[in-house]
């Protein structure tokens, strides 16, 4: 009987500490700017659907998808993310094909389908850093964009302007030659609307 009491105590205290500690840690770290794989649901639904199998990363031909350890709370443990400055998404949509759980829905490899269903974030230009806005014609972000003139257009001196259709793949941020980068993708799940 003594052992059973002990086990009950162990189980209940473990449960309590997990709930208490995990509840605090569950909130995402706001300073961390990351994207979820293309087409992923909003953060809450994504976390509840993802089983952390890692196949999205294994199917990514660009090696853009990495996996969280504990830095984003235990709820995000082992979930996929993309840091666009390190390696951006090329919108090949292979992760959605292989995802078994529907956390990343299957999306056709077509511009219309991608623009309709992919909302990773929106690029934002920092005019104080952007070379084109400083009078040095650059336009690299425009050339890197997979949806030129749909997601981004350039004005005088190749000055970039992000349009409504930007899906947030981050290829512009990846290619920006300024340090720190003058164009950044603001993830949809952290953006205050």
């Amino acid at each position: 009987m003594k052992r059973r009491r002990f086990l009950q105590y162990l189980a209940s205290s473990g449960f309590a500490s997990l709930v208490a500690g995990g509840g605090v840690k569950a909130a995402n770290t706001p300073s961390l700017r990351y994207l979820r794989p293309p087409g992923a649901h909003d953060e809450k639904k994504f976390l509840s659907k993802c089983i952390r199998c890692g196949k999205c990363g294994e199917s990514c031909p660009n090696r853009a998808i990495k996996f969280f350890s504990t830095e984003n709370g235990i709820v995000s443990l082992d979930t996929p993310f993309i840091i666009p400055r390190e390696q951006a998404c090329i919108l090949c949509m292979k992760c959605g094909d292989i995802c078994p759980t529907g956390a990343i829905p299957k999306i056709d490899y077509k511009a219309n389908a991608i623009m309709k269903s992919v909302h990773m974030g929106r690029a934002r230009v920092d005019v104080n850093l952007c070379l084109s806005f400083q009078g040095k014609t650059c336009g690299v972000c425009y050339r890197a964009c997979p949806l030129p003139d749909i997601a981004i257009r350039v004005g005088m001196l190749e000055q970039p302007h992000v349009l409504e259709n930007c899906v947030g793949c981050g290829l512009c941020e990846r290619s920006c030659i300024q340090i720190p980068q003058a164009i950044k993708v603001i993830p949809n799940h952290t953006r205050v609307s």
Binding site: L18, V19, L47, C50
Partner: peptide, 13 residues
């Protein structure tokens, strides 16, 4: 129960 509470599949970890 914790999976319901956190809304995440914790077994994978």
């Amino acid at each position: 129960a914790l999976s319901v509470y956190f809304g995440a599949v914790l077994f994978g970890s």
